[in-house]
Amino acid sequence: MPGWGRLHRWLGLTLSLWLVLVSLTGTLLFYKTELLQLKYPQLKLTEIPDHQDAARVFDRFDAGHAFLPRADKPWIEVVDVSGTHQYFNAAGEHLLSREHMGDWISWFVEFHHHLLLHELGKDIQGYLGLASLLLVVAGLVKWWPQTWSRRLFTIRWAWPWQKNFRATLWQLHRVTGVVLLIPLLILLITGTAIMYSAVVSDSLTRLFPEQHQVTSMPAVATEATSWPQRLRTAEVLFPEMEPRLVYLDRARIRFKYEDEWHPNGRSYMQFDPFTGALVSWQDIRNQPYGTQLAQMVYPLHVSAIGGVSLLTLLVAGGIALIVLPVSGVWFWLWRQRRKKVA
């Protein structure tokens, strides 16, 4: 199918640099905690702070948001209004300040999320994500064999200075795309869906509007005017939930229930900042099934579920999304050079 072949070739050449960079940064960010601890050894903490340790640190700040410590992030982390990340240990001692765009890890995060262009970058990421899905479909249609054999999945290795390297490039490109099709599709589909999260959530909610009330807001009198009081109240009222994130200027806590995929959860408890009264409660399990399904997209993309097995699969997919454009463009350049010689 020559039309699909031309579409695959020109989309590949157009998207190759973006695919390499966004896949490289995304694959490295699977190991963000390890990279932070490598660059900042003071973050290699052996004692994980508890919620009350964190709450006492939160009381020092009036704005921004903060993350509760957990096993994969064993520190207290506060993000102020300027975007600077402040890190503390269990004793409340300040360990580190990371300014927004102040190190290469922050640059990687911003590039992977927004191409360093804020909301405009998010829009561009969405368009490029859709184009990359069309690229994969075109490549699959172009490759689809009339007869199947083991040779379709064979790579005969040769080095660039050897005669058969052209065949190696072609086989590497073809086999990588086919063998690792599932993980690279997971990454591309979920990554694109994140860029269009509102549309995806609305569409899934329309498809699956059913909902089941599992919890309701307790009718209790509270006077939780400090973060230690708010977290204690939350743990008493909803022991099956784990607080993960707080909004410092809004007296709002975000929770994760035990079987929820999202690493920070999508349930909220809102206190009155002045009186300390509990004023609202939102449980993701009370939301329509489509809304709950939409909240599974991000955790799948970042391998927040599935343990080592899914992480290994998605890292392989990320590497495939680097190998494919490199091998494809290299093969195309080799052919162009041969045509000029001929």
Rank of each mutant, 00 (worst) to 15 (best):
R266P: 00
Q229P: 00
G3E: 14
H113R: 15
G307N: 02
F58H: 06
W75A: 07
L134G: 13
P299S: 10
H65T: 09
L278H: 01
E93H: 08
A304Y: 02
E240G: 01
W227L: 11
V57K: 04
I189H: 01
R338N: 15
Q282K: 15
S197E: 14
R56S: 12
L96H: 08
I319E: 03
P273C: 10
I76Y: 06
W332A: 07
P263V: 12
I48V: 12
L204S: 14
A91V: 08
E210D: 12
T205S: 01
R6P: 03
Y247D: 01
G265V: 01
Y289T: 14
K339E: 13
V109F: 12
A71C: 06
L185V: 13
V220R: 09
D249K: 14
K340G: 09
V236S: 13
V200Y: 11
V326M: 08
D80W: 09
L133G: 00
P273T: 08
N264G: 04
L180K: 03
V78G: 10
A251K: 08
T275P: 02
F58V: 07
E235F: 03
L311I: 05
Y31V: 02
F255N: 04
A294C: 14
E210W: 08
V315S: 00
N89E: 11
L36N: 13
L324H: 05
S309W: 03
R151C: 00
R254I: 02
F30A: 10
S327L: 07
I186T: 14
L128I: 04
R266Q: 07
K44C: 06
L184R: 01
L310C: 10
M269D: 03
R252F: 07
E47K: 09
A131H: 06
V179I: 11
V175E: 06
W143L: 07
H51K: 10
F331Q: 05
Q270S: 15
T190K: 12
V279M: 06
L314I: 08
T205G: 00
W261I: 08
K39T: 11
F58E: 05
F274Y: 11
S197G: 06
